[in-house]
Every structure is written in structure tokens, then in C-alpha cells.
Simulated scan of single mutants.
Amino acid sequence: MNNFKDFNIKPRVINFTGDKIPIKRVFNIPIQVLDYKIENSKHKENTKCLTLQIEKDNEKRIIFTGSTILIQQIESVPKDRFPFETTIVNDNEYFEFT
């Protein structure tokens, strides 16, 4: 009989730390994006939610957004390019990294 510990499977845990802040509090301010995850939204059916682990003013913070543009952009960033510095702008139609 096999024993699970012999499979050497480690849990994949993504724990983000810091206080949650509204995305509008970081518009037009340089931030560092440390990591992210994309999951199904718990609030809007059939949509995705982007969770960002950021650093602002030397403090780790968490941002939640359903912005499809931000999701598309961050999925295009290679994992080996994290962390990176950016600014999130709101052009009144959508949010984007600049």
C-alpha cells in the first residue's frame, strides 16, 4: 500500500498579508506588485476576481478587483519578472497598469 507522504506532494498555499484597501486609493501612485491570484468571483457570477499583493509606502496591502483589463495585463507578465513597479490608472472606462 502506498503512503501519501511518499508522494512528496507539498501544499500550494498563497497567503497574502496586509490590510485590504480599495483600488481607488492607489490610483496614480507608484506601487510594487509582489504577487497575484485569479479566482472565480464570490460576488459576481461568471466573472473573475484578481487579488493583488502590493507594497505601498513600505507596507504590504491587498487589493481585490474584477477589472478584466488588469487581469489580462497581469497574466501577460512572466512570473520571473515579479515583483515589479507600476501605477494603476483609471481612465473612466477601465483600470490599467502603466
Score class of each variant (00 low, 15 high):
residue 75 E to S: 09
residue 38 I to R: 07
residue 73 Q to C: 04
residue 89 V to F: 11
residue 97 F to M: 06
residue 12 R to P: 02
residue 83 P to G: 02
residue 5 K to H: 13
residue 67 S to M: 06
residue 59 E to T: 09
residue 50 L to T: 04
residue 7 F to S: 11
residue 80 D to R: 04
residue 11 P to M: 03
residue 5 K to M: 09
residue 44 K to Y: 08
residue 12 R to C: 05
residue 7 F to T: 11
residue 94 Y to P: 02
residue 74 I to E: 01
residue 12 R to W: 06
residue 34 L to C: 12
residue 25 R to F: 05
residue 6 D to C: 02
residue 51 T to R: 10
residue 28 N to I: 05
residue 93 E to W: 06
residue 25 R to E: 15
residue 26 V to W: 02
residue 54 I to M: 01
residue 37 K to I: 07
residue 68 T to L: 10
residue 92 N to A: 07
residue 9 I to V: 15
residue 31 I to G: 00
residue 76 S to A: 14
residue 21 I to C: 01
residue 49 C to L: 15
residue 78 P to Q: 03
residue 88 I to F: 02
residue 97 F to D: 03
residue 94 Y to E: 14
residue 7 F to I: 08
residue 33 V to W: 00
residue 23 I to V: 08
residue 30 P to K: 09
residue 47 T to G: 07
residue 75 E to G: 04
residue 78 P to R: 02
residue 77 V to P: 02
residue 46 N to D: 14
residue 32 Q to C: 08
residue 78 P to A: 04
residue 43 H to D: 13
residue 88 I to T: 01
residue 52 L to T: 00
residue 87 T to Y: 02
residue 77 V to N: 04
residue 15 N to C: 04
residue 96 E to Q: 10
residue 18 G to V: 05
residue 65 T to Y: 05
residue 17 T to H: 10
residue 19 D to Q: 09
residue 6 D to N: 13
residue 61 R to P: 00
residue 11 P to T: 08
residue 27 F to D: 06
